[in-house]
Structures are given as C-alpha cells and as structure tokens.
C-alpha cells in the first residue's frame, strides 16, 4: 500500500509544472524515504532529478518500494481538477496498474477521486557523482527567471561567467548583444534577496537558453535558486522545496565543435 498526502494541492501542481515541459512521462519511485524521480528530457540534453522526502508529507505510507510510470500530460489534466487549497492524496495498491488522486476541499464537503492508468516505462537511471563545483551561485529565483527570459531574446545560448567579483550572463545574435552582471550582495534585509558566490576557480560556460527557461518553470517552488558550475561538466540548477525536498536540473554545456 502506498499513500501520500499533502495539505495543499498547490505544491504538487507547482512540482508538476516544473517538470512537464521537459518530460512527457516519468517514473515516480516511491519508498519509505519518499518519492524520487529521475528522467532525461526527450532530447537527452538535460536531466531532471526530483526528491520529495516522506517527512515533508502530511501523511506518508509506503509498505513496499513502488515505481509508478506516469504520463505527465494526464497527471496535469487531473491536477487541474484540484483547487489549490484542496488536500491531495495519492494512493496505490502494491503491484497496482493504477494510481488514485483524491482531492478534498477545506470544509471536507467535496471529495473527488481520479484514477489514472500507470505506464511501464523503461528508463535508465544515471549515477550522478558527488562533485565539488568551482562556482556555486545563489540568487533570487525570480531574478534568474528574468535574466533567462530577457537574454533568450538575443540568442539561443547564454554564457555564464563567474568570478569572485560576480556572475555575468551574456547572449548575442542578430539583434546585437546583451550582458547582465550581478555582484554579490553586500548586505540585504531579506535572505531570499541575496546573491552569494562561492568560488574556487572562475568558470565560463555556454548553455542553451531554451533549457534554462524550461528550468525556471520551478520558480514558484522556491525563493532562491542555486547554480553549480565547473568547467566541462553539467550545470546544476537547484530549487529547494521548503520542508519537502528539492528539484535539480542538470544541463550539459555547449562545447566548441
């Protein structure tokens, strides 16, 4: 028996919004530790890794490890039927071929359930090594989304250049070129507004705008985003989901041909 409950459907809606543009379907691996999802996007350029810890749920029970392959378009249709404040419960029997989403209104007067067929997805899991990154930048998630959106008007690629002075995002194309520099904040009233840089070595890497923009769909989940970079390895864009877990996106850098 698997059962996981969140007191507000909005969290699950935001999680789904953060992955559904990159992935058509994905396997949710459930264990007593929580729910894990790892999947490459359709073109295998980026990897999504989602962790929702069992202690972050309002109720969580998983008697046996369970892998649930879900069509995210179908899941999205179902979650649209929930109000943001509804309690959402996901349920499945052991070895089931369906999962049930149950939504309950705050006043308990409306209860709806939606059963969705599960899929058998043959997905390979990638082993992601622990890495010490040359540069780790933390910044407001909204600011990062804004930068990605603004720069994508100028080119298909963004160069992220990080030194101890700050981080620079650049793009260029037919229109011309654009540069956005962010310095480390010296003092801020609110922690979520801070820009911080931990640098061992400066890095300069090029990434595809469209993937960065897709990652920023996770912005509603978190005030801050963390960018981890080293030369010649994938960028990690991490959004922490308060009290529940995190979503990490890995993106292969563009390299000179």
């Amino acid at each position: 028996m698997f059962e996981a409950r969140l007191n507000a459907a909005t969290t699950l809606k935001k999680v789904l919004d953060a992955i559904k543009d990159l992935l058509n379907e994905a396997t949710f691996d459930c264990s007593d530790a929580g729910i894990q999802l790892q999947a490459m996007d359709n073109s295998h350029v980026s990897l999504v890794s989602l962790t929702l810890r069992s202690d972050g749920f309002d109720k969580f029970r998983c008697d046996r490890n369970l892998s649930m392959g879900m069509n995210l378009g179908s899941m999205s249709k179902i979650l649209k039927c929930a109000n943001n404040e509804d309690t959402v419960t996901m349920k499945a029997q052991d070895n089931a071929d369906t999962v049930t989403f149950m939504f309950e209104s705050q006043n308990h007067e409306k209860v709806s359930d939606y059963e969705m067929k599960l899929m058998n997805l043959d997905q390979e899991h990638l082993g992601i090594p622990e890495t010490d990154y040359s540069c780790v930048v933390r910044m407001p998630a909204m600011e990062f989304a804004r930068i990605c959106r603004d720069l994508s008007q100028f080119g298909e690629s963004v160069i992220i250049c990080c030194t101890k002075e700050g981080v620079k995002f650049s793009a260029s194309g037919d229109v011309g070129s654009a540069n956005i520099k962010l310095a480390q904040t010296s003092s801020v009233d609110k922690e979520e507004e801070a820009v911080t840089i931990e640098m061992q070595e400066p890095v300069s890497l090029t990434f595809a705008c469209r993937y960065l923009n897709a990652f920023t769909k996770a912005t509603p989940l978190s005030n801050q985003v963390q960018l981890s970079m080293s030369a010649d390895v994938p960028l990690v864009v991490e959004y922490r989901i308060p009290d529940l877990g995190h979503i990490r996106y890995y993106l292969a850098p563009k390299i000179e041909e």
């Binding site: 295998h44 350029v45 990897l47 390979e124 563009k254 390299i255 041909e257």
Partner: peptide, 13 residues
C-alpha cells in the same frame, strides 16, 4: 557549438 547528451557525463546504473 555542439550540444552533447547529458548521459555522456553520468554513469548508467
């Protein structure tokens, strides 16, 4: 510039 597969950076488990 070329875009490589993310899988080439990580080991298959």
């Amino acid at each position: 510039m070329a875009q490589t597969s993310i899988a080439s950076y990580f080991n298959t488990r």
